[in-house]
Computed example of a mutant assay.
Amino acid sequence: MVLSLAAHAAGVLGPAALLARHASLAPQLASNAFGGPLVLQSDETPGRIDGDVYAVLEHPFARVSTALADPAQWCEILILHLNTKYCRRVELQGATHVQLRVGRKEPQAIAAASLLDFAWRAPQLRPDYLSVRMEAPEGPYDTGQYRLQAEAVPLDGGRTFLHLGYGLSYGGASRFAMQLYLGMVGRDKVGFTRVARGAGEAFVDGLRGVVERNTMRYYLAIDAYLDSLALPPGQQLEKRLQAWFDATERYPRQLHEVEREAYLRMKRDEVRRQAETR
């Protein structure tokens, strides 16, 4: 269904290289199985997997850069992800952190979810370029060295070219946990990239599939959040929740997990809890 490019993790490109990447990806942005100007890439090396999304956003650069340069607004974005149970911006020893609690695809107590403590790097913010980066040294199940980054440049017509990167390192415990997961509830879970397998092709699976799915979910959360900002504040939350779920349902093979009402009910409660406990 969905074809992606094999590529090395991009890291932060910078404004000139990001514009060059937009030009080089023009054919894939214009024609792909995603149904819009979007390219997903992933790369797996021993002990590490990275995913990158390149997309043209129908939002002006000023709106994108204002939202993504603010760690508090990142929490409004990240809470849309099915597995994010809680997010808050905190100051620790003079440094900004974005602390996530990630867990099950169902209601869960904050304390029962795993902590991802992202150190927030001061963003590069210019009239023609934005770059933000968060890094977490440790995660659940022997994972670590998480990176979550975004960079953007303005395009003609009030649009923005976005590069979103997400990746992690993993060890033996991660591989064992994934084997258990794939042998049970996750046995049908795949990513978006097609790779050679036997005499044909198949979607990637395992941890690479996990990273591709999460990279896509984070991108869809950014887009849903930006879309909601055009509405009055009292209508924004419901708009972004509905939009994120609808966007994931366009890729049911990869991203369908729960039914709409279960997602909406859970997220309304989690957003309320997040607001009350800051």
Rank of each mutant, 00 (worst) to 15 (best):
154 P>C: 14
8 H>M: 05
57 L>P: 00
102 V>C: 02
275 A>S: 11
51 G>Y: 07
204 V>A: 05
74 W>M: 11
163 H>M: 14
13 L>N: 00
106 E>V: 06
186 G>Y: 07
69 A>Y: 06
7 A>E: 03
117 D>Y: 00
207 L>I: 15
215 T>M: 03
265 R>P: 02
210 V>E: 01
271 V>N: 00
92 L>S: 05
69 A>M: 00
154 P>N: 13
28 Q>M: 13
32 N>A: 09
218 Y>Q: 10
21 R>P: 02
202 A>E: 13
185 V>P: 13
110 I>K: 15
192 F>H: 03
114 S>Y: 15
187 R>C: 13
68 L>T: 00
119 A>R: 09
126 R>C: 05
153 V>W: 06
65 S>R: 08
211 V>D: 06
265 R>F: 10
2 V>N: 13
233 P>C: 05
33 A>L: 08
199 A>F: 11
182 L>V: 07
260 R>N: 00
153 V>C: 10
10 A>G: 06
68 L>V: 04
277 T>G: 01
79 I>C: 04
8 H>K: 06
225 Y>E: 00
127 P>M: 12
198 G>T: 04
169 S>A: 14
11 G>L: 09
99 Q>V: 15
74 W>V: 08
130 L>C: 13
208 R>C: 08
179 Q>H: 11
251 Y>R: 00
182 L>G: 15
95 A>P: 00
1 M>T: 03
125 L>F: 09
155 L>C: 12
242 Q>H: 08
73 Q>Y: 03
204 V>N: 05
106 E>Y: 11
177 A>K: 04
16 A>M: 09
166 Y>A: 13
156 D>F: 12
14 G>I: 08
224 A>F: 02
75 C>V: 12
